[in-house]
Write a protein that binds this DNA or RNA. Structure first.
Length: 563
DNA sequence: GCCGTTTTCGGCCCGACTGTTTTCAGTCG
């Protein structure tokens, strides 16, 4: 069992406990345990072997034992017992928005409803409205939720939600009386997938802004509309929340809406220990409101340094802040070059010269041309001879611009056996070699891992491109033992790419943190296929920040030296 | 079930919104 599966077992346990009406804090303990397991930088079996499972935050004696059982048998006794006492369809019922454990338990007890089909039938027969505390509107609400649930996938890739969020910001900005507006939530934290879009606006008449937003042509359905919050489903099928607050309330509201929930819970708990109350309106000592003119003020009142949004996941940032050990995170201005771009020699749209000019305009000191190698026929991959000719073009640019260094590189294909698509003699003549997998994506874990490790053992390979191959929302990562890959990267001194394309963001946050802990260099690359693509870099920087990376860990945040 | 610069027991974040009530329970983030 891997971390994901253990986490899912704990989440299932939490759902079942909730249905049974157990102590909410016990439910939360399982949820928190699931989070901790999912985010563990190390394999559970390794931690267990070393007796260090309890070092994960939220894993105590009981959960430690259950992880042991899960690793040995794939399940644990308490879960098996609970499963026997709860109808099998209950989890899908609890997944219906607006239908929680209390209602689910009642529906089961009083109407014998035990799955979604049963709920649909009962709604059809209008049997819910006769229960005390239920009514026609509640039936209608559930009917809509059930229908929406069929359509909506729960999370959306950032590549979809970020542009949409930015478009919404512009629309809200134009609503009457709006003074400022910003994207919050998981998009601001730059999670690679997001469940909804969160916006915060400040206006003289906040309620009117919420109403205007809900009435916008982009909205297909209004879920809730109150004094401070409008919650809607957009035409795209994505949920959007707008918090609208009165002048002065912006920083506290932005902080609240940015979350994460777990980060906020920890901060509020910290506030309570200090005799303070933290909520979306500010921070209070009794009746007295403490000054909050910026998010920094909130942290200052709690005795903490500012924690950037990308770190707010309760994955160690609060402990680090308390200890004065928050990392110095990478900034866009730290990026001195881009080590992975394509040109019209392969599948790019622009010439070598045009890409170099665009890079100089961005203030870069160097740029590596890394077109595809020959086996990628669809991309007009280059062989040794064409690469040699391309090098002449690169040399001409370098002669004309001595202050800027254009590097001759390649994105060489890694074959099934881990050998490379170009001979060593060709690779030896290049400044920067990125090796990537583009075919044989379905090979098993051992083969994929071996492929990457062997590629890294080639002394000419400087970096591994998009190491896990995922395309967010479309393609799962290859089967891969990432820990072994990271270990090999450390051993061979190979950098791992953080591919900045929004649809990739590969490596993921967790993998970046692992690379950091193991002392592996990361190279943040745009993988641009045109001039505009160079601007992907900012996405890469924000992802790098989520992985706690600073200049020291990022290859292209340092001047170019051939090493 | 977890956890400890108040605690090894007794806490565990805080408020918006809805529907069905007339002061609140349930759900959500």
């Amino acid at each position: 069992m891997d971390r994901q599966q253990v986490a899912e077992a704990f989440e299932e346990m939490a759902d079942l406990l909730e249905f049974r009406g157990e102590e909410p804090f016990k439910v939360r303990a399982y949820r928190r345990g699931a989070e901790a397991v999912r985010r563990s930088p190390e394999e559970l079996a390794v931690l267990r072997g070393e007796g260090r499972l309890h070092e994960l935050p939220g894993i105590g004696k009981a959960l430690e034992e259950k992880i042991g059982e899960l690793l040995d048998r794939g399940t644990f006794r308490a879960l098996e017992e609970l499963k026997r006492s709860v109808p099998a369809g209950m989890e899908e019922l609890l997944a219906v928005p607006g239908l929680g454990p209390k209602t689910a338990a009642r529906l089961y007890r009083e109407l014998g409803i035990k799955d979604r089909a049963g709920l649909a039938a009962a709604l059809e027969q209008k049997r819910l409205r006769d229960l005390p505390g239920m009514g026609e509107r509640r039936e209608q609400q559930l009917r809509e939720a059930l229908a929406a649930r069929e359509r909506l996938t729960s999370r959306h890739p950032l590549s979809e939600t970020l542009p949409l969020a930015e478009a919404l910001v512009e629309e809200v900005r134009r609503l009457p009386g709006v003074r400022q507006v910003a994207v919050a939530g998981s998009i601001r934290r730059f999670r690679d997938t997001t469940g909804d879009i969160d916006l915060v606006a400040e206006a003289a008449d906040p309620e009117a802004v919420g109403r205007a937003f809900a009435a916008s042509g982009r909205v297909s359905r209004v879920l809730a509309l109150g004094e401070v919050r409008a919650r809607v489903i957009l035409a795209e099928g994505i949920q959007a929340d707008l918090w609208a607050v009165a002048p002065g309330g912006f920083p506290a509201a932005l902080h609240h809406a940015t979350g994460s929930k777990n980060h906020s819970v920890r901060l509020r708990s910290l506030a309570r220990q200090l005799g303070l109350t933290l909520n979306e309106y500010g921070i209070f000592r009794g009746e007295e409101s403490l000054a909050v003119r910026s998010e920094e003020d909130i942290y200052r009142h709690l005795g903490l340094p500012f924690i950037p949004p990308e770190l707010r996941e309760d994955s160690g940032e609060i402990e680090a802040a308390l200890a004065g050990q928050l990392p110095e995170l990478l900034n866009p201005a730290d990026i001195l070059g881009d080590l992975h771009v394509h040109t019209d020699w392969s599948d790019g749209q622009r010439s070598v010269d045009e890409m170099a000019a665009a890079a100089r305009e961005l203030g870069y000191r160097y740029l590596a041309i890394c077109d595809h190698s020959r086996s990628l026929g669809v991309a007009h991959g280059l062989d040794g001879e064409r690469l040699a000719r391309q090098r002449e073009e690169i040399a001409a640019v370098n002669a004309a611009h001595p202050e800027f260094r254009l590097l001759a590189g390649v994105e060489v294909d890694i074959r099934m056996d881990g050998s490379l698509d170009l001979p060593d003699a060709v690779l030896a003549q290049l400044d920067f070699v990125t090796a990537s997998i583009h075919a044989g994506l379905g090979a098993d874990r051992a083969i994929q891992t071996r492929r990457l490790v062997r590629a890294m053992e080639n002394p000419h390979v400087d970096a591994i491109g998009h190491p896990t191959g995922r395309i967010l929302g479309r393609r799962e990562p290859y089967e891969l033992d990432l820990e072994e890959v990271v270990a090999a990267a450390a051993r061979t001194g190979t950098a791992l790419e953080l591919n900045a394309q929004l649809s990739r963001l590969d490596l993921s946050t967790e993998h970046l943190r692992l690379a950091r802990e193991r002392g592996v260099q990361v190279v943040v690359n745009s993988d641009a296929h045109g001039v505009e693509g160079l601007r992907n870099m900012v996405f890469g920087v924000r992802s790098a920040r989520r992985g706690w990376l600073g200049r020291a860990q990022v290859r292209n945040a340092r001047p170019w030296t051939a090493d």
